[in-house]
Design a binder for these strands. Sequence first.
RNA 1: GAGCCGGUAGCUCAGUCGGUAGAGCAUUCGACUUUUAAUCGAAUGGUCGAGGGUUCGAGUCCCUCCCGGCUCACCA
Length: 541
Amino acid sequence: MSDSRTTSAPVLPRAWPFEEAQKLATHVDARTAKAGADDARPALLETGYGPSGLPHIGTFGEVARTSWVRQAYTALTGRPSRLLAFSDDMDALRKVPDNVPNRDMLEKFIGQPLSRVPDPFGTHESFAAHNNARLCSFLDSFGFDYEFASSTQYYTGGRFDAALKRVLEVHEEVVGVIAPTLGPDRRATYSPVLPLHPRTGEVMQVKMDAVNAQAGTVQWTDPATGEKFETPVTGGHAKMQWKADWAMRWYALGVDYEMSGKDLIDSVRLSGRICRILGGEPPAGLTYELFLDENGQKISKSKGNGLSVEEWLRYAPQESLGQFMFNQPQRAKRLYFDVIPKTADDYLTHVEKAKTLQAADPKGNDLRANPAWFINKGDIANNAGSPVSFGMLLNLASVANAETPEVLWGFIRRYDASVSPETHPMLACLVEHAIAYYADFVRPAKTFRAPSDKERAALVDLADALRGYEGEAADASTLQNLVFEIGKRHEFEPLRSWFGCLYEVLLGQKEGPRFGGFVALYGVRETVALIEAALLREQQG
RNA sequence: GAGCCGGUAGCUCAGUCGGUAGAGCAUUCGACUUUUAAUCGAAUGGUCGAGGGUUCGAGUCCCUCCCGGCUCACCA
């Protein structure tokens, strides 16, 4: 490695967002060079959203990943940029979703733009407005920096007018791109322009009788009535069929970067061709892989396989979900419960590494290649990360029967007295999640065996003895001695079988924590209740 | 039919532009403990799908093939 080589070209941090940022920078440079100083606007990154459904884990992934490209672009060039979250809310309602109320009402609005369909929840002025609001609050909950854009507002506000007229000028060429990809039926009627029916409001998929580029109108016939119409394409009186819509939007807004799933590979290609026909340059972008479930099957909302954002966030902090999205976007990854703890710990490991790197050089390439640098938005706080791994907390929650964070904190403080929820907020967060994980997955799998008569007598004794300590500040060793004494009094041989009994009968597991310590943390009264419940369960069974 | 991704330890995967094959879990052993468990330490374990090529050197780059999976081809 010679000096001349290291000084000639700056080495990019070895992380995929920087490679993407490099592509974006090249794209912006080309655009600026072509248009001159007239086009010195910020780099524009776009993410698309279809408001016929609710935001989901893919939505999170796309916005998170695009945000990281933007962060890398800023670090790389120092130039301004914008992130537009574009909602295609003028798209027609195709079918009534399963998971909404008032489905009969919605049935009547099939074919109408989503922004003109009433809100089945009755809280917003339209179904689209409702889902747009859900999108925004979803994105806000993660702290994403973005600008929301409504397709309907852009169309009706005239922001697409010039581009729409341009589409009419090259109408036949656009048809020539899309038509060969369609089946014979659709091919016969295809037009990139979908006029809104002046009376019914329906998004019409009909053949154009004539296209008048100069007037900015299209002529078409209502197949139901035979009535002929001439509709302006401007001002929200028509919209584009989706591939053409994408292309027109790229062209009209000058989108510089947009990523998409591999299911859209063909669409990206076709929309790119249309964008060039219009006279634009399609954005740079990344094709990311789709998520698979545990068995390698595609995740689909209708099947309900895979994992939702809500589920993930119940069992681990949101940073871990970011970590999952950061890893290898171009590789299909399985998304199911088992990956959560590992991913959370991967993140924690990166945070510790990043803190060291940041202290050494806040602008270093190694730091900027670290996932935590992206996930924490370029600044890793001193109290980020956790001295205890998530995996360890899960084990601890399991063996300690941790029903509440306090129980877990008792064990943690014994492990390191200097940590607390105040000094280690991430650890506090992990504890909460570990409790949820335990409650949902570990506890239900426990099997409690019935005590033998001998064990039963000993347990009754233990409960009686413990009652003597209720309300007192009993320490762990006193309680441990008490438990030990009762075991000896009842002549358990070997004595460890007495402890085995406690774990299997009371905690539903083969192993457990030192029992005196457990009682001290779990509570004397609560332990008595635990014993009584076990004895009662036995009588009923 | 078109395109994409993968095949590395028993399992799940990592492998940082070619330089002595790694982690976690699992298994086994040990340390600690008035029984345990957590925890800590160690060991075991791989023809890197197959074959060829480039190279002093290939899990890594190129070609061919095998196996598995996914996406698109109706709509967005």
